[in-house]
Design a binder for these strands. Structure first.
Lengths: 209, 209
DNA sequence: GAACGTCGGGACGCAACCGTACCGTCGTTG
DNA sequence: CAACGACGGTACGGTTGCGTCCCGACGTTC
């Protein structure tokens, strides 16, 4: 019971440099072969590390990836207040575009999102992060615009998020065409126009004859 | 040289029912484990067929999937002319939404798109299909609207496609939230508003102070 | 009705990977 | 300075999948 336990010391401590090497290797490997083909052996090889080193830190491949996901997804997105919906949107689009311009991100994100569709554990972590992200946009960005009077109070947050995030994601992650920074203002302006219209009730809509 | 070759007959002919079974099994398997983990053995098991049956028809796993992709992606999208941009958009969105509501499609499409980012062969086939799709939208849908005078002639086709396709894809394939049919008209209206603004030159844009 | 020739199925060798057990190493702690 | 104890690395059995080969079955054609 009252065992005297000496704290691990000396060589008996996880070396952070190795943990980092593994993390980096996982990202590389994830981008190169995807989650489906991700193998611990390959990660170990790439990191110049033994498999045991990995299994000591994470129980399984799933654990490993889940940990990476929460580490990356946990970051809060800073949503600066520029004083106008258009300005806020430009900033947000620039941030997203910059993120998706990174080769690793552009490959890993769609891959994990696809994997989430069949892996409940990944889905949970990823959807949580995604929901945070979307809620943040909806609450902060749209919320501010409503306060300013730029948008109607009964704007549908979810629909708004789709209109904001969809185009840039489609362009960069699916269509995989570059999005020049100079195009961002135009896209932002278009989205503002869309949002102004999107506030009307969901069901009722007149059809022109 | 002048060999007399009797045409294959009798049991010596590919049985279409088996080919179909394999195709169906591939779709199921693709949805369940993704391209990365797709195995010929599993496909054969699920189809109730021998591996040889598959290898007789396709040289490899890649060939198999490429064939499926071109078969599905080859279909032309009917873009009905309703007489107005708004009407055309509603139809298009309904078609996309219906397609993405199918479980198989909603899982396979994002998976293959992610895979395309690292597999040149799949990327080629898929990007070709995607480009066709986008060009069709750009040319027909936007083209008609321009002719009608609903949009400016110098509307950027690519940017327009992003605004049209992005939101619905994000909503259904990424965010994985249901898109009610009743929401489509509103989304279409929002997109029309966006498109009207998106025609201004890409670079120049005044910033409100 | 006999011959033909491809069919589907089972088995094989090979390769990759999983997760674990063991072993010598190393640096701190008392 | 000696002992502790977790460290990283190697080696291992088991599993899975790939692509191929050979076999008996089968139905049409002559």
């Amino acid at each position: 019971m009252t065992e005297k336990r000496r704290a691990p010391a000396g060589a008996a401590v996880l070396r952070g440099e190795i943990t980092s090497a593994i993390r980096a290797a996982v990202m590389q490997e994830l981008a190169e072969v995807g989650y489906g083909r991700l193998s611990i052996e390959a990660v170990a090889r790439r990191a110049g590390v033994s498999k045991t080193a990995i299994y000591r830190r994470w129980r399984s491949k799933l654990d490993l990836v889940l940990d990476m996901v929460s580490a990356v997804a946990g970051r809060n997105i800073p949503l600066l207040d520029t004083g106008s919906l258009l300005g806020d949107l430009e900033i947000l689009l620039h941030v997203m575009a910059r993120a998706l311009r990174h080769r690793l991100a552009a490959q890993i994100i769609p891959d994990l999102l696809a994997e989430a569709a069949r892996n409940p554990q990944i889905a949970e972590k990823l959807q949580a992060a995604l929901d945070d992200y979307q809620q943040a946009i909806g609450r902060i960005l749209i919320g501010r615009a409503v306060e300013r009077g730029e948008l109607s109070p009964d704007t549908d947050r979810r629909a708004a998020v789709d209109l904001i995030v969809g185009p840039v994601y489609w362009r960069m992650a699916i269509s995989r065409a570059p999005l020049e920074s100079t195009e961002v203002p135009r896209m932002a302006a278009a989205i503002v126009a869309a949002l102004r219209v999107a506030c009307v009730g969901p069901v009722r809509d007149e059809v022109e004859v």
